[in-house]
Design a protein around this nucleic acid. Structure first.
Length: 862
RNA sequence: GCCCCUGUGGCGGAAUUGGUAGACGCGGCAGACUCAAAAUCUGUUGCCCAAAAGGCGUGCUGGUUCGAUCCCGGCCAGGGGCACCA
């Protein structure tokens, strides 16, 4: 037989052209065609330069769903755009003297070209970038509506400040407390900034998580914890020795049941009391300054060594006027949560215990340790679990209560005595959207000396970013621009200044999915299109967005609805979080990172070894890590697509690894995927030339049965995004068809071979669309696979008349039992007990129990 | 530090979610074809034991159950997020 090779690059280009000419993936504008709608969306990419394998994986998955849903008879919306504002463009501007705009649009061009070679079924007519004026103009309209509705407001907030570069730093730009460029110790500064009132919806965002049953449980949990609803006691400590004008110290606690074990109070360095003290006491000022050097990142603050400064002020314990506690300023208390002041109970909180040990404070055990629990010793005794029964000795006498009950009892106890009130708090803070940067959406407000903060008139929108800017110095070029800031006050007409802050790029990505439904609408959205297409039926993206992006988008949907821009609360009905693409790392003798292209890996009994391609010297193989430029362990999708084809890349990304887990990129894996491409192509050709292919017989029925069983399984697996399992099913079917071909050649004609192959091709089509079209043509499909309906599995072919049950003795498998599928339980027991092995095991005795699980297993208990 | 997740052969993983652990793929080994190689095909492949019988085996450890990769407790290791990276 002539060896037939499949030419991927020719074939792929050919079918991409056909799809595009037939406008197969362009979704009609407006309310649609009457078919059920299905909106598939993958998180849009940041145009960083070139696409990477992570993108290939993400968009391959989305494309499978899009093509599958189309074949299932849905009107599918599958758009693509660019999350195009952000810091990297400004960094590139500073380093390479390119304009952020030019850099961004060039990257978009490159990446669009790369994505197109993947053969994605995307409606490219809807494409936009968030840095397009047409997009950010609409975002400015949204902002003004939010401002009118009281959703946007200004207040003071802290930023990381680089005193040398005189600029605001992102958390990422603060390394070990130092500015990334200047190396100067970072300070905290307060600026007046714009906020969005996400906290208005805290309860709603929490409650609605329950309705998101097509979201991963872990994401819902993370969001729940992030919103952080808590019930606790808020009360005041009377102070003794506080500066003039400072009254009581307000404290919030979720553990009022430990109040009897209080041994100190602590306040945030940003607490009003600390600020008062700071003004007059250089010691306090020095300590607070040190705390502020930790920057604004919560991780940094909580991982730092716990430090405190005794203010000398005392507070009076609410249960006993004679009992005084010292007040510390402590570096681990956040002003943003609760009241910025706490009481410490070292016996029942590890952090408080560490603090007490360090500063010699008493440890007072409130609870009676249960049997087996260690009393307070090296570590705190924390009976936090609700199952653990505990006492609050003094609060509830000797009444036995669980943890939550104890907290409730403590709150009641305090309320009855007028010591404080029950308060519900959320951890979720309002969203600060001000960024002191150029490459973002300008906030459309004007500062007027007489009128204050005035929104720009809507007819003056967009507030365009100026193109003539300079990046010769750090900081926001908008501030330094000679003319851009200067404008007339929309209210009084007098001289006024524009806001130079731009918006957080998370704002851009919080509503793009709505804009895709009507990308040319004169307003931010077209309400009819939004109500037709939203919510997104399947959203796919990285787990790293589990909290911020997804929560902000949920908030935006609500805020847009309130301001008349949308019809849904929940933007994403189905969510899937895919894993990363990782790769081995390599280092040469000099310790420098090497790219996979420079390395040849050999596998033998002695294990894996790697050698430099150029001189054959041995290379050390390092850990498997996320593909990154710095470790040079990236593989360029262009290289893979040009040598193997897009279908191979897509197939490899979808096989083997479960989509929500990390996938390891290996050369062997790609070759394996490519081998399958070739096999399928050969199979399609072999099958059409096969003599006697339409014969029938029990063998052929078996093949047809398998094909329909495979179809039924693949159908559910794609629906559940279990692509790797679907792939395995298709391998099994392909193997069986190859066997059938071989048998037919050997003179035992197996029928239904063409029919089964066509089914296989239709199943493969969403994953390897080009190969499928080519095979479909050879098989005489007539139309395009992309236009055929998804085949339905025939229930008659799925039924089985005989089944094989495993037979266990005391839970260990000892035999198999093949029996009619509809056999009764007593038939099964009888048949089981007549098996030789079972009789031998019983040795004449009567089994204690025989457990029959229908269609699963038989277990004989002796 | 806090929240969340993951852990199964040499490797990626499967297991109808409490019912045959290792489907399918990669790699290895043996063979066929070939002057030879590539490609392709066939067989084999968790570990222990010469083999059979059997035993062991899903990060470690304890428990619940007729039966645990799956449920519960305690650990260990790796990863994601922590509000100005996107």
């Amino acid at each position: 037989m002539a060896s037939i090779r499949y030419n991927a690059s020719e074939t792929e280009a050919r079918w991409q052209k056909v799809w595009s000419e037939r406008k197969l993936f362009e979704t009609p504008r407006g309310a649609g065609t009457g078919k059920p709608k299905y909106y598939v969306l993958e998180m849009f990419p940041y145009p960083s330069g070139r696409i990477h394998m992570g993108h290939v994986r993400n968009y391959a998955m989305g494309d499978v769903i899009a093509r599958y849903m189309r074949a299932k008879g849905n009107e599918v919306l599958h758009p693509m755009g660019w999350d195009a504002f952000g810091m990297p463009a400004e960094n590139a501007a500073m380093q390479n003297k390119v304009h952020p705009k030019a850099w961004t649009y060039e990257n978009i061009d490159t990446m669009r070209r790369q994505l197109k070679t993947m053969g994605l079924s995307i409606d490219w007519l809807r494409e936009f970038a968030t840095c397009d004026v047409e997009y950010y103009e609409q975002q400015q309209r949204l902002f003004l509506d939010f401002l009118d509705a009281g959703i946007a407001y200004r207040r003071k907030s802290k930023v990381n400040w680089d005193p040398v570069d005189q600029t605001v730093l992102a958390n990422e730009q603060v390394i070990d407390g130092l500015g990334w460029r200047s190396g100067a110790p970072v300070e905290q500064r307060e600026l007046t900034q714009w906020f969005l009132k996400i906290s208005d919806w805290s309860q709603d965002l929490l409650d609605s998580l329950e309705t998101l049953d097509r979201w991963p449980e872990k994401v819902r949990l993370m969001q729940k914890n992030w919103i952080g609803k808590s019930r606790g006691l808020q009360f005041s400590f009377a102070t003794n020795g506080a500066p003039e004008g400072f009254g009581d110290l307000e404290v919030y606690t979720t553990r009022p049941d430990t109040l009897w074990g209080a041994s100190f109070a602590a306040i945030s360095p940003d607490h009003p009391l600390a600020k008062k003290l700071e003004a007059n006491d250089p010691g306090v000022a020095a300590f607070c300054a040190e705390c502020r050097r930790l920057g604004t990142s919560q991780e940094e603050i909580e991982r730092a060594e716990k430090k405190g400064l005794d203010t000398g002020i005392k507070v009076v314990h609410p249960f006993d006027p004679q009992w005084e506690l010292p007040v510390y300023i402590a570096n681990f208390i956040l002003m943003d949560y609760g009241t910025g002041a706490i009481f410490g109970c070292p016996a029942h909180d590890q952090r408080d215990l560490d603090f007490a040990r360090k500063y010699g404070l008493p440890v007072i055990d409130v609870f009676t340790a249960l049997d087996g629990e260690e009393p307070v010793g090296r570590t705190a005794f924390v009976p936090a679990k609700t199952e653990q029964v505990l006492f609050i000795r003094k609060v509830a006498g000797e009444e036995v209560m669980t943890g939550d009950e104890a907290v409730e009892a403590a709150i009641r106890f305090c309320e009855e005595r007028d010591i404080g009130q029950s308060v519900t708090k959320f951890r979720l803070r309002d969203w600060g959207i001000s960024r002191q940067r150029y490459w973002g959406c300008p906030i459309p407000v004007i500062h007027c000396d007489t009128c204050g903060v005035v929104p720009e008139k809507r007819e003056n929108l967009p507030v365009r970013l100026p193109d003539d800017i300079e990046f010769d110095r750090p900081g926001n070029p908008l501030d330094r621009h000679p003319t851009w800031r200067k404008t007339a006050c929309p209210k009084c007409g007098g001289q006024a200044m524009r806001e130079t802050d731009t918006m957080d790029t998370f704002v851009d990505s919080s509503w793009y999915f709505a804009r895709f439904t009507a990308p040319e609408a004169p307003g931010p959205t077209d309400p009819a299109a939004v109500s037709h297409w939203l919510p997104v039926d399947q959203y796919i993206g990285g787990i790293e967005h589990a909290i911020l992006h997804l929560l902000y988008s949920r908030f935006f949907a609500r805020a847009m609805r309130r301001t008349g821009h949308g019809g849904v609360d929940e933007p994403f009905q189905g969510l899937f979080t895919q894993g990363m693409v990782v790769h081995e790392t390599y280092r040469g003798k000099d310790g420098k990172w090497l790219s996979p292209a420079e390395v040849r890996v050999e596998e033998s009994d002695a294990g894996r070894k790697a050698f430099l391609v150029t001189d054959g010297s041995e290379v050390s193989i390092g850990g498997i890590e996320k593909m990154s430029k710095s470790k040079r362990n990236t593989v360029d999708p262009d290289d893979i697509i040009s040598s193997y084809g897009a279908d191979t890349a897509r197939w490899f990304m979808l096989s083997d690894s479960p989509p929500d887990r990390d996938v390891i990129w290996t050369e062997a894996g790609v070759e394996g995927a490519h081998r399958f491409v070739q096999r399928v192509w050969r199979l399609a050709n072999d099958v059409t030339e096969l003599p006697g292919k339409d014969g029938s017989g029990s063998e052929s029925d078996q093949l047809l049965r398998l094909a329909h069983r495979t179809l039924a399984r693949v159908d559910t697996m794609i629906g559940e995004l279990r692509f790797n399992s679907a792939v395995a099913q298709m391998y099994t079917l392909a193997n069986a068809i190859e066997d059938a071909v071989r048998q037919t050649r050997a003179g035992k004609p197996a029928g239904h071979v063409v029919e089964c192959t066509r089914l296989l091709i239709q199943m493969i089509a969403p994953m390897m669309p080009h190969l499928a079209e080519q095979c479909w043509e050879v098989l005489g499909g007539g139309t395009l696979v992309a236009e055929t309906s998804w085949p339905a599995a025939d229930p008659a072919l799925l039924a089985e008349d005989e089944i094989t049950l495993p037979v266990q003795v005391n839970g260990k498998k000892r035999a198999d039992l093949t029996i009619a599928a509809d056999a009764s339980e007593s038939d099964i027991v009888a048949a089981t007990l007549s098996i030789d092995v079972i009789q031998k095991a019983l040795d004449g005795a009567v089994p204690r129990k025989v457990i029959v699980v229908p269609k699963r297993i038989v277990n004989v208990v002796i």
